[in-house]
Design a protein around this nucleic acid. Sequence first.
DNA 1: GCCAACGTTGGC
DNA 2: GCCAACGTTGGC
Length: 153
Amino acid sequence: MAYWLMKSEPDEVSIDDVLAAPEQTVAWFGVRNYQARNFMRDGMRVGDLALFYHSSCAEPGVAGIVEVCSAAYPDASQFDQASHYYDPKATLEQPRWISVDVRAVRKTALLSLKQLRTIPALADMRLLAKGSRLSVMPVDAHEWRTIEALLEK
DNA sequence: GCCAACGTTGGC
DNA sequence: GCCAACGTTGGC
């Protein structure tokens, strides 16, 4: 099993929104970066766990844990001309972008970016690297354990 | 709103 | 295939 971090703007989809959704499950759509897509397509498996990270907000940080609960499938929004995520170069025959479904495992007290930066064991975390912008990225097992221990406090 | 860092596009 | 220009992300 692999561990991930997935960024969401809480104004769009917050951890509370995931909890409020039917079966506490939402489609993770709108990824429009190839590296992030490839992680989802090639790395993610049903049952993988991910840190649910709130970005572009007053207090960015880890807000919960979600579980990947579907295989990758074409992201419907790429075909929707009315969508912000519409991609004119995507076709039904050759979709470019994918979604997975994620289910809320639990909401946590916010573990802020500021706090994460103070933890020596997380110094090499991809999220904390300068210029890191990926919306989906892997998390090392030891980083996961470190963060999970902090989330339980 | 600023801006650093990075990704993508397109002319050549 | 290079690389400048442009667009986006996301913290501050």
